[in-house]
Design a binder for these strands. Structure first.
Length: 579
RNA sequence: GCGCCCGUAGCUCAGCUGGAUAGAGCAACGGCCUUCUAAGCCGUGGGUCGUAGGUUCGAGUCCUACCGGGCGCGCCA
């Protein structure tokens, strides 16, 4: 159940009943301060302004028409025209009981599911995945999971970089290695090293550059042997990526791959059709679309090159082909693309060109969701001490090692293998949560000590809250599924927890609407934090707690545990029974 | 030069369609373990929201100018 949506509908109905225009925004939000109820309607003031009437009187009229019998225990008008809604505790308790019986915790499946194409991760297969791919991979994956959970049809698209001139030199080098009896897997075990070696030969070795260019031509010409060699390279490189996805708990699979090469056959069509429509014209030998919507420095239309003067295609061509494929072939209602924000201009241009050319259905939204860079603690792009790029696989290994080290410093009766498994979940979770919990649009400062300190808003804190729930049930020897009593909300901590639990759905919806996983992170931290307060203030299994109260509290614990698990799962973070 | 993003507590960050006294976490300081895992809880201090104007009942949020930082701007992606 989405309380916010429910109350918004009620408020809207009241506004219409009070004679306000149908499009009046009730501006209903969760109350920002204790004492102002649970939700507040702020729309009366805005509406009064438009109609030039007294806001308090209008608010009163609205309240008179507001039907919240059973839902609200008190509705009051405050200040210049705020309407504060206090929810009925019994209603909340009932809603919780209902939610508890549902595997989805009362989160409904969308009535009108959409088809959503999500383009994320998109590593360049010429090289190994590095930290630059982390954000796209995990932010995209979190959004994908949330969309699927709400019932949308999600089509993942891993737009890998598997095409382009650099593959000429890589294939030429690989061909030589194989000729020298090297095994492809071994030769490509370290892609960075392989790339460096190929690049060095390209720069230094006589004749090699020509051979590399020859390979590009053969590849693009569809030469079978060359394609087979290319496929071999792609397979091995992709396997490296899949190992990282596995470690990262990212859901991308082989069948989600739709790389640049997949659009190869359509690129000439894209250019031709743009020419036929008069959108693309020749300029300095290249095929260019001029955008009246965007002026450059001299006030002239900005140019988007869609075909190089030598006849080659660019990523703008590929992205246009991809747009058309996604909108028409995949029938997307939404196209969501996660890339770093340096590409914002590019995707703006693509959308303008694509819409003019009819490469995207009018109903399809085209949402470029940019994210900022990962910075080191010095505020500069996150690099190794020597200034090199940090391999993603190594970063993840370090996270697990650091978590292991921190765990070994504590007293514990866990076995070695249990510790290792927990360290893996904690280390990976820490890296992901630290990233996901920040607004994706701004740059983000990477800091090992912060994310693994185990203090504050971190994955380990949430995972620990989960283990506390599990621990209670272990100790109680009770199967949560067998609990049947009514939930009673008496202590402040219980009431706060109840409301928070029931806000899960609206948070998931927020994540989906704006592709912002940090809303869910903030929510889960607040939930865990409120559970910790509850845990301290409200004894469950201790002596003197009446059976009915004990059961009620156990049910709250159960709901917290399941909500944490589900929420973390939507973020791609694992939980553990013990820590 | 033009465009996009950013500037909020010492640090890392929230702040949703403009709303009530700008919030968290870390760090600092003070309490709380014979009691469900102290990887925790409770409390205290800390802010001219980059600057200056403007719009209005109301601005961190919208508009304008400026300052500071990042990124981008025809044949890489």
């Amino acid at each position: 159940m989405n309380i916010r949506e429910l109350l918004t509908q009620k408020a809207q109905a009241a506004m219409i009943a009070a004679g306000l225009p149908e499009d009046t925004n009730p501006a209903l939000t969760p109350s920002k301060r204790a004492g102002f109820g649970d939700y507040q309607i702020n729309g009366a003031m805005g509406a009064a302004k438009k109609l030039k009437t007294n806001p308090r009187e209008l608010a009163q009229k609205l309240v008179d028409n507001l039907e919240l019998d059973g839902i609200a225990s008190e509705i009051e008008i405050a200040g210049p025209g705020f309407i504060n809604i206090h929810l009925n505790q019994d209603w909340l308790a009932d809603a919780l009981s209902t939610a508890r019986e549902d595997a989805r915790l009362g989160v409904s499946v969308r009535k009108n599911p959409q088809t959503v194409v999500v383009d994320y991760s998109a590593p360049n297969l010429a090289k190994e995945m590095h930290v630059g791919h982390l954000r796209s991979s995990i932010i995209g994956d979190a959004v994908v999971r949330a969309l699927e959970f709400r019932g949308d049809k999600v089509i993942r698209q891993n737009h890998i970089g598997d095409w382009g001139t650099q593959f000429g030199m890589l294939l030429a080098h690989l061909s030589d290695q194989l000729a020298a009896n090297e095994i492809a897997e071994t030769a490509l075990s370290d892609l960075e090293e392989f790339y460096r070696a190929a690049k060095k030969r390209f720069d230094d070795e006589e004749g090699f550059a020509d051979r590399a260019r020859d390979y590009v031509v053969k590849l693009q010409g569809g030469d079978e042997q060359c394609l087979a060699l290319w496929q071999r390279f792609i397979d091995i490189s992709l396997k490296h990526c899949e190992e990282v996805y596995e470690k990262l708990n990212v859901t991308l699979k082989r069948e989600d791959v739709m790389g640049e090469s997949g659009y190869n056959d359509d690129l000439a069509n894209v250019v031709r059709e743009l020419q036929e429509q008069g959108l693309a014209v020749e300029d300095q030998g290249a095929q260019v679309v001029f955008l009246e919507e965007m002026k450059n420095k001299e006030g002239e239309p900005m140019a988007v090159i869609i075909q190089k003067s030598g006849g080659g295609y660019l990523y703008s061509t590929t992205d246009l082909a991809a747009m058309r494929y996604r909108s028409f072939k995949l029938d997307a209602d939404r196209i969501i693309i996660f890339t770093d924000n340096r590409q914002s201009l590019h995707f703006n241009q693509i959308q303008i060109v694509g819409r003019q050319a009819g490469f995207i259905r009018e109903e399809t939204t085209y949402e470029h969701c940019p994210f900022g860079m990962m910075l080191g603690s010095d505020g500069k792009p996150f690099k190794t001490r020597t200034g090199g790029t940090i391999k993603l696989a190594e970063l993840l290994e370090e996270a697990v090692e650091r978590a292991e080290k921190l765990m070994s410093e504590r007293e514990s009766d866990l076995s070695e293998s249990e510790m290792k498994e927990i360290a893996r979940k904690v280390g990976i979770g820490a890296v992901k949560f630290a990233d996901l919990s920040k607004n994706r649009t701004s740059d983000y400062t990477f800091n090992w000590d912060h994310m693994l300190s185990f203090d504050g808003a971190t994955a380990p804190y949430l995972q620990y809250a989960y283990t506390r729930v599990q621990s209670i049930f272990r100790k109680a020897g009770v199967d949560a599924a067998t609990l049947t009593d009514n939930i009673k909300l008496e202590a402040e901590q219980e009431k706060a927890l109840a409301l928070k639990l029931l806000q899960f759905e609206e948070v998931v919806d927020q994540v989906i609407a704006d592709a912002y996983p940090h809303f869910l992170c903030a929510y889960l931290f607040e939930l865990a934090s409120q559970y910790m307060s509850f845990y301290e203030a409200c004894p469950v299994l201790k002596e003197g707690v009446e059976p009915a109260l004990k059961n009620s509290r156990l049910m709250l614990c159960d709901l917290v545990g399941r909500t944490l698990k589900l929420g973390l799962d939507l973020l791609g973070i694992e939980v553990t029974q013990q820590m």
